[in-house]
Nucleic acid binder design. Structure first.
Lengths: 219, 219
DNA sequence: GCAATAGCAGTAATATAATATCGATATAGT
DNA sequence: ACTATATCGATATTATATTACTGCTATTGC
């Protein structure tokens, strides 16, 4: 009954954090030791109160009226909240074009994510390396996850195989899944699935575009 | 005053569409000529009524009680709504690791997106080709967009340059921007920005993981 | 040095949007 | 004809974002 929610941050608040981080770092690099919520809100196109609430939810030190928040303290608080300080290892399944793309992308390390190894069913791919990361057969998945204590799985296989891969990851001890396959994954309770559905993004883009171009014709 | 909203679909409804599409195609390929909303809802872990409403918002033909909706008709309706039938050309700015990754990814064509050309400021990159796509200097951006009638821009540059690139895209006639840079972009009215912020996704993943692992220690 | 003022933080209340629930109607199969 | 199941419209609930308000702190003017 002791609900014990020390800091329950909503998902959308969490997703705003990286934007705050970027803005705060830029401000700090520009020499701003102190920054106010309205300033950040204006930069990001958000509501002042929302920004304040988000800041309050991660930082234990309060802001001071008329001045604002300590920039460096806020940055540290957000980084701590997001776990950017301690690196998380991950495995990637699916060494196709998208998988190779992510393996060669070096930007994740800045956010505390390190891809330890890749896996694939295709014997032509396994055994070699892609961007310095080993590509292993699926049979090694479980042992690698357990031995290296890995809890994050990245799925970059076609939709038809995604659910099977997901099940394999779950039984290998994976707790959080980053799903690039354009489909819904069924998982047991307690497993988080973060969908990175490019098709969904493209849907929004494409729809907006067609509406804009249609209205342009009317003009 | 004539609001002229023939079919205003909410953004999250739009983002569910690709999931419906995947499920419906799978059902069709399995031989199901007719499919009901509850069936799809169960597969995707959604509410029945929500699925029904989403179907109704794109399809003009009503579903029939006791049976459901015509699978093929629904698929066509969603594809039409998302504009997957007519291909949209796009330009990509930023031929770094992420940009190259997207250029080499062949999955977009299935969703009606075709990257016509890439651009970069680095003279070492421009002039060549990546995955069969020309890499051009930024000076050519505007003319290419206008000549080829391109209205979608993909930003894969570091955050520090993203706003400048965004401005350049807007003044080149771009109406919709797919932003992979981990920062907020300020745009004029009428320009759609779809953020594909991997950092935001990682934030959710990382937070969930740390909470799970902490609770595991308590067990 | 002191009072007045302007700007910002913090909390509460309202508004909005999305989602889930409920009731009524219609249809296919038995 | 009856029953089970699905669509459809209307309502209720929830989560989230916006607005309004109060109080505090630093700057400005006297």
């Amino acid at each position: 009954m002791d609900k014990n929610t020390p800091d329950s941050i909503s998902r959308q608040a969490l997703q705003r954090m990286p934007y705050y981080l970027q803005a705060l770092r830029a401000a700090r690099d520009a020499g701003a030791e102190i920054i106010s919520a309205p300033t950040v809100a204006a930069q990001l196109g958000l509501n002042e109160v929302q920004v304040r609430k988000d800041f309050a939810s991660v930082s234990d030190t309060a802001g001071k009226p008329k001045t604002g928040f300590q920039t460096s303290e806020l940055i540290a608080a957000i980084e701590r909240t997001l776990g950017y300080d301690n690196t998380n290892d991950a495995v990637l399944v699916g060494a196709g074009s998208l998988g190779r793309a992510l393996l060669s992308y070096r930007g994740f390390e800045a956010y505390g994510l390190s891809i330890a190894a890749a896996f694939d069913v295709d014997p032509n791919l396994t055994g070699g390396e892609i961007s310095g990361k080993q590509v292993l057969p699926m049979s090694k998945l479980s042992s690698v996850c357990h031995n290296m204590n890995i809890h994050i799985g990245i799925i970059t296989v076609p939709a038809s195989q995604a659910q099977a891969v997901c099940d394999a990851l779950v039984s290998s001890g994976i707790l959080a899944i980053w799903n690039f396959a354009p489909m819904h994954l069924n998982t047991p309770e307690g497993i988080l699935v973060q969908n990175e559905n490019m098709a969904a993004s493209l849907a929004v883009l494409s729809k907006h575009l067609s509406e804009r171009l249609d209205s342009k014709l009317v003009d």
